[in-house]
Amino acid sequence: MSSIKIELHENQVNELVEVCKSFSNDPLELIHVLHKAQSIFGYLPAEVQEIVARELKVPVAKVYGVVTFYSFFSMIPKGKNPISICMGTACYVRGGEKVLEEFKRKLGVEVGETTKDGLFSLNCLRCVGACGLAPVVMVGDKTYGRVSPDGVQEILAEYR
């Protein structure tokens, strides 16, 4: 996997090294560090995991173990506009799944994947605490309520 070397931006690498330092390079802070790392890079490619391993002095295999254990962490780069469809109980019963199917159809990707042009990535989440607006979709930080399959096209158009 890491045979395909990704070139990371130097300033991002420096930022990650600083993050590790801010946690005193403590191996027990691995999950926190990975959390921050993902917010810097958008995802956790092998190269980023190797830097974290080196800085915290933990085996890369352990870092990879943690990354693959928690569904929050991703090794696939997120799209420019990450789409999250709520699959919490309220959203689900009010047709969240149909909305998800429509996003999949329109974008031609499965859950956890990113479109070829890098514009969108598709994910599910469990309840954003806006059940009154069910079904809920988030694109980046923006929330859309009472979304129907018919409205999907309109949402995507905003970002194209």
Partner: peptide
Amino acid sequence: GALWGINRGFMSVVAPAFEQ
């Protein structure tokens, strides 16, 4: 540090980093 438990549930396996 060559081997570590990765993934979860039924997909769990003990493997080297990145399943190399």
